[in-house]
Design a protein around this nucleic acid. Structure first.
Lengths: 231, 231
DNA sequence: CTCTGCTGTTAAAAAAAGTTAATCCATTAG
DNA sequence: CTAATGGATTAACTTTTTTTAACAGCAGAG
């Protein structure tokens, strides 16, 4: 499948950021430029992006931390780091997180494009897919982009939060979706009240899925939630 | 069944680790690189990995000790050692623990891949499977993934901790499940209170299995517990 | 045999999660 | 400008899960 690449680019240097952004857009990619790690993390949670390019040194949240957070909600999306340092320890840290490649500054635009293509060849197209395409969860059709659940009684329009949470759950079907990570991803902060708010939304989603007994949102005490579809 | 290989790689040498990791990922495996034995052990406890590649010489916890600990909670997962030494005594020690193969440095990537494939052929796909498929324990059906025990009076939903503990016990049926290992695996730490907590859960499980007199959770004084099913 | 540490068991306390309703807040219709 | 609406949060209360406490019994070392 020849899927469109939607690149999330996190780079605090305005000049370099704009340069890269323009170049990549010119090559036919969709590119969003985030100025810092926090902004990038929020953007990623839209479920829209299927490729990441992160500068390692950024204010607020560095590229490695950002990648680690993203890995907890998406363990497949390709991540390419840009780093000024060529220190070995840095390289190791990145690969442990599950980076797909590195590029040390300064680098040429062609070099960057070559790396992107190399990663795409390696990982294949199956992981490069935006997460907002319609999917069947059990017997229920879910359209993340339109925020619609097709229940037996009819279409149910989801609210922003309901949709964000469900999207994360579905993306991580069969695996534990960590509480704190989810809170930081959707609510931006994992304080007590946001936690309670999340529980309220879990209850809402459970109610919606009650019609299909094969679907379960299971709690893993002290860890998070697991979206299960019995087969 | 063509199951995805999730490889846990423990290697302290940065360059080699990153090289192996990248190569194996390129071959379509999921790979996590741990820097030392302790980190690797914690990662393994997620239950996610179904293949291990351990360097023998590592800081904090060497490959053999690591393998020994892992063997106590999983006696089937394939383990492949990487060793700089070609000493016989080392080889023997590894095989006693239950290693599946060795590779002496230096080795080529192709060689490593060949060994992995060889082990996979040898052990078949049945052990390379996450251990959460439904099983019969005595007369009782147990579904680890759904955390359900099918008792005579009906389904009993297990809590997170009950399920984790039972899963370990069942996986090690007929063998001693070491106390400390279990505590570190489930509670993360083997302090006094966690120990008492574990005893409480053992009591709970015993109560649940009371209906089948063939099932026994036997205590091995000072060592741990042994899950027995008389036949 | 006796002492000490380990285990069995039950109950109480604490923490986390489930649920429902009230409140807040922003947006929009009248 | 005000009322109505809908989404999100906060509150209040309940239930479940886990931990801690307390005490009794048992195994093995010496």
């Amino acid at each position: 499948m020849d899927t469109q690449l939607n690149i999330l680019l996190a780079e605090d240097d305005e000049n370099l950021g704009k340069l890269l952004s323009t170049y990549l857009k010119g090559k036919g990619f969709f590119v969003h430029l985030a100025q810092d790690g926090n902004e990038a993390f929020e953007s990623f949670n839209s479920g829209f992006y299927n490729f990441c390019i992160f500068d390692v040194m950024m204010p607020k949240k560095d590229g490695f931390t950002l990648a680690k957070d993203i890995r907890e909600i998406d363990k497949n999306v390709p991540i390419l780091f840009l780093t000024a340092k060529s220190m070995k320890s840095d390289k190791l840290q990145g690969f442990e997180i599950g980076a797909d490649d590195y590029l040390s500054k300064p680098f040429s635009m062609e070099e960057l494009l070559a790396r992107i293509n190399a990663i795409m060849r390696r990982v294949g197209s199956k992981v490069v897919r935006t997460n907002d395409e319609p999917v069947m969860v059990g017997t229920i059709k879910y359209e993340p982009e339109l925020r619609i659940l097709h229940l037996s009684e009819g279409e149910k329009k989801l609210t922003t939060k309901e949709n964000q949470l469900l999207q994360l759950l579905v993306k991580n079907e069969g695996e534990i979706l960590d509480r704190q990570v989810t809170l930081r991803a959707i609510w931006g902060d994992d304080n007590y009240f946001n936690g309670r708010s999340m529980d309220v939304y879990i209850a809402k989603l459970r109610k919606l899925f009650k019609e299909d007994s094969a679907i379960e949102i299971m709690n893993v005490h002290g860890k998070g939630f697991k979206f299960l579809v019995k087969k």
